[in-house]
Amino acid sequence: MIEISHVNKWYSPTFQVLTDCTTSVTKGEVVVVCGPSGSGKSTLIKCVNALEPFQEGDISVDGTKVNDPKTNLPKLRSRVGMVFQHFELFPHLKIIDNLCLAQQKVLDRSRDKAVAKAEQLLERVGLKEQAQKFPAQLSGGQQQRVAIARALAMDPIVMLFDEPTSALDPEMVSEVLDVMVDLAHEGMTMMVVTHEMGFARKVANRVIFMDRGEIVEDADKEDFFGKPRSDRAQKFLSKILSH
């Protein structure tokens, strides 16, 4: 589904953020990307739907090359759902319109169809009563669930999560993770940047560990949590699992 091969990215000629990153996500797979902050994991996931450009290497999603200038990026992105750390709901639109905007403008769905789809998804994330409110009237956890529903409204073939729980108060983390776990169990292909190792343990198929712009470890979940091969991954794990 996602093929990332030998991606190099520089912010400036002397500052390289991604170094020779190669990995893949197959259909139905849940891949968790973790690593210390500044290791390039968010940058990597943003390269997948070309929100961030990169200078070398190739990324393709469902056979379409992301870095090909001829690629119709809006069309490709409409099939790749993305959830951001800071939710990024549109504050001037009601919840229902947040979910309908792209359905109507990008997928050309009728207003009725878009609303029906939106209501069904809001129900699924448990927020049907909030449809007429504005984003700022919701808690962080609710906003992030709306953001997930908004991405799902486009019927994506793959979902990207960029630290979806990092900006949340601790008591709201689980309500968002529950939605993500359900999604994983339904067979959604997911690439998730997160520090939530509990989530990784529960639903991930593979775990990728990044440090200083490199993919240091790319292993099955059992192998990763059992006996990481690299020192750096071991150190990282011992730090975040010790308490």
Binding site: L51, P74, R77, G81, F84, E88, L89, V106
Partner: peptide
């Protein structure tokens, strides 16, 4: 904001 809009395919 524009990133989220772009990610939706706008």
């Amino acid at each position: 904001q524009p990133a989220a809009a772009n990610a939706l395919g706008l």
